[in-house]
Design a protein around this nucleic acid. Structure first.
Lengths: 296, 296
DNA sequence: ATAATTTATACTCATTTAGAGTATAATGCA
DNA sequence: TGCATTATACTCTAAATGAGTATAAATTAT
């Protein structure tokens, strides 16, 4: 490809977009600007040693909490006619919620943007949307199967982005309303500018997947925590209830945590042991599980 | 962040880098240029509708095989003093090997660059490197545990990048030799320019992980294939031997494939049934497995 | 004070999945 | 015809998973 004459190598703008996630009071929250309409973003600066370092420094300065974990999400080329041609690089960052120092910045629950992704109480919303989608599905073959697969029984919490895209395609999102002139009532949930809600969906999916095989939950918790706090944080992110005894068994047999020796007090019920994350784990195990029948 | 005055928003160059993978004769191969020294790359073109589309079109034109699967790997900012400041976006693409139309292009086995990642015969190489690393590990605490965890027993085939980075840190790679003036014999394997070998490591890790939970192997096989061919392709990518009966059981119970009704002939041994990929699968299941104890 | 409530923690049991090995079937080739 | 070779079909055991129940130790209400 090197020897292909470039049709154009016009210089481009590079923008960094951050999805900063914290879990506070059992709710996953995301840092927004413009009264919740957009994700924090800004141009790449020359002073930054690397993209990631740039983002980390930036966020650290703005939120007074250092980023425990940063992960690149996706890079895409802006192409809507309104915006100048440029590259956007999005990141997922995990932190704990602190008063936002950034003017106009605001932490909001991520389920305000994706109500149908929260199935901790009932799955009613997803079912309702599935019904709404049934009308749209009449239009073409295969649509019904797709909608049913994504929103119906056999819900897979990682498919945040496909679900969002299906709703877009069905014209049920305000962001898409301009393209498909729909009169139907829209899906519930706040909108965002540009494709920021799409980026949030990507972040949610990534975190829901990641949390299962890398010990990143701990970036969202205080240093000491109870097993219930840990479980509720997981539930908040997965958007689903977990089976308590089995969750504990899983945590124990993975040896991710160790007892601190102390317990909670002053709350209703039996005091809970306080645990901390075993730092050794990060070094020891890189990633958890294969699923191939290896010969040994 | 929007309200932070940019220190500099100087325009940047954007470069696309492709890791094109095929599996031929039971060996994973990667398309290279400059006699194997570099990965194919080129500047982003204005004509492209999206980054991914640009890459697909490009590769399709060059290799006469359409890309079955494309996935973004990583975006990073070039920063070595010698190269102009710019952004590089790397991609993983799966295809089948065809005569490279690109002048100077050459398919090479990816284990030529990462000999220690091939453990289909014996794990001797990894063990040898572990021994070599033991010397380096004397320098500081914790090093031994890291080296042992990555190269020793309990080998995890997904940790390609951490292993590569450890070898770099230990000064055993030619790419790193400039930085750490080492006299020790280097690790085996071909080098690449810039960080291309690092990018290849990222691609290998991504593919090894992906192949376990998304049906992407089929992009690397002919339309019809035997179970042995499927297994050997998986083994080639994972760099490990698989247990044959269990592998078959896994494939069958996942219902990923269906019989074509035909069999192989003309080869030694009993003829094998030919299978094909079940197209429904792609639509049906998005991602395979959760690992959370969900309540139902 | 005592009972009721609440939360934590510890077990049990059935079912499914994974790891390993063995046996039989159908070809080509000497 | 018999041997080497590859395919395919089972069996057995151990471990992981899903679901439910029982007991312990605190706070809160009566």
């Amino acid at each position: 490809m090197r020897d292909t004459a470039p049709m154009s190598d016009s210089p481009l703008q590079v923008e960094l977009i951050a999805v900063l996630v914290a879990v506070t009071g059992g709710e996953p929250r995301v840092l927004t600007i413009q009264d919740g309409l957009a994700l924090p973003s800004g141009p790449l600066q020359t002073g930054h040693r690397s993209l990631q370092a740039g983002l980390s420094a930036w966020v650290g300065r703005q939120t007074s909490h250092k980023l425990g974990y940063v992960e690149q999400l996706y890079t895409f080329a802006g192409q809507s006619l309104s915006e100048a041609r440029g590259i956007s690089i999005s990141y997922l960052g995990l932190t704990r919620e602190a008063p936002a120092h950034l003017s106009g910045a605001l932490w909001r629950g991520w389920y305000e943007y994706f109500p149908w992704e929260d199935r901790r109480q009932t799955g009613a919303l997803g079912a309702a949307l599935a019904a709404r989608l049934a009308g749209w599905a009449k239009g073409a073959a295969g649509r019904m199967a797709r909608a049913e697969g994504l929103f119906g029984a056999g819900w897979n919490e990682e498919l945040v982005l496909p679900r969002y895209e299906l709703l877009w395609e069905a014209g049920l999102l305000p962001e898409a309303a301009r393209h498909h002139q729909t009169t139907a009532p829209l899906a519930p949930g706040l909108e965002m500018t540009h494709d920021h809600r799409r980026i949030l969906a990507t972040a949610m999916a990534r975190l829901r997947a990641k949390i299962k095989y890398r010990p990143v939950v701990f970036e969202l918790l205080d240093q000491d925590f109870t097993l219930l706090e840990l479980q509720q944080t997981m539930e908040a992110i997965a958007g689903a209830r977990l089976h308590k005894p089995n969750f504990r068994r899983l945590i124990e047999q993975q040896e991710l945590v160790e007892e601190t020796g102390r317990t909670t007090q002053g709350q209703a019920g039996r005091p809970a042991k306080l645990f901390r994350f075993r730092p050794a784990v990060l070094a020891e195990r890189g990633i958890a599980g294969t699923k191939l029948p290896l010969t040994r």
